[in-house]
């Protein structure tokens, strides 16, 4: 079992929790009645569980004949199904006020993603493709400089979280912040993906779907505001 992944998970939950508290203190939190912390945790839990099951099925391991493997998260969590499950859970829990719940969790979600990628420091898993850039990092015992790609991703998401929190102070139309968060989350993965070491065939198309859904949400939110005005 790769326990260091739990550190990354702790960074993610901690990042999300801090963002929720920060937003609440700024009076910039929710226009909704939902318990955001409960929804955040439950959506994350559902995403992890279903993402793991999808990864097992996708790699040819039957969850029914190898049930204990479900708990071996290091064996892989399928990004796309995990995000779909998390979003579906959030939709179910906040169905009466979905745009407001999505907006209220948007900053926390980006901060959690930033924390998750920042957790690479605890896992010694930050490095990507080789580079000669001055900030290149090397593995112990190696002379090959590499992009600290997971730190790039962490920085990108944390900056995006702060920027989105600032934007929310302008009271954008309902659903806009949530859609922007989805757009940034997917785009962040897409632009950093070429810098990650891979055996080929990464889930890039899932990121494209996420970007499409985010753009669709932004358009919907703008139209909704226009039609109300």
């Amino acid at each position: 079992m790769e326990f260091t992944l739990l550190f990354a998970a702790a960074f993610a939950v901690g990042g999300g929790a801090l963002a929720l508290r920060w937003e609440a203190a700024r009076g910039n939190a929710a226009d909704c009645a939902g318990d955001l912390w409960e929804i955040f945790l439950t959506a994350a839990f559902a995403g992890l569980a279903f993402g793991r099951l999808a990864a097992m099925v996708g790699s040819g391991v039957n969850p029914l004949t190898s049930p204990g493997d479900i708990l071996i998260i290091r064996g892989g969590v399928a990004t796309g199904p995990a995000v779909v499950a998390a979003l579906a859970t959030m939709t179910i829990l906040g169905r009466r006020e979905m745009p407001a719940v999505a907006d209220a969790l948007a900053v926390a979600a980006l901060a959690a993603l930033g924390g998750w990628h920042f957790g690479c420091l605890a896992r010694a898993a930050c490095l990507g493709t080789p580079t000669d850039l001055p900030w290149a990092m090397t593995q112990p015992g190696s002379t090959v400089g590499r992009h600290p790609v997971e730190l790039y991703a962490a920085g990108l998401y944390l900056i995006a979280a702060v920027a989105l929190a600032q934007y929310r102070k302008q009271r954008p139309s309902p659903g806009m912040a949530g859609s922007l968060a989805l757009l940034v989350a997917a785009a962040g993965r897409l632009v950093t993906e070429p810098l990650r070491p891979s055996l080929g065939g990464g889930p890039v198309w899932w990121y494209a779907v996420g970007i499409g859904a985010g753009v669709g949400g932004v358009v919907w939110a703008r139209r909704a505001r226009s039609s109300r005005a």
């Binding site: 929790a17 929720l20 609440a24 909704c32 009645a33 912390w37 929804i39």
Partner: peptide, 13 residues
């Protein structure tokens, strides 16, 4: 919990 995290889940709802 919700008081600290921004939601307003109160009462029967």
């Amino acid at each position: 919990m919700s008081e600290h995290f921004g939601g307003r889940a109160g009462g029967d709802g």
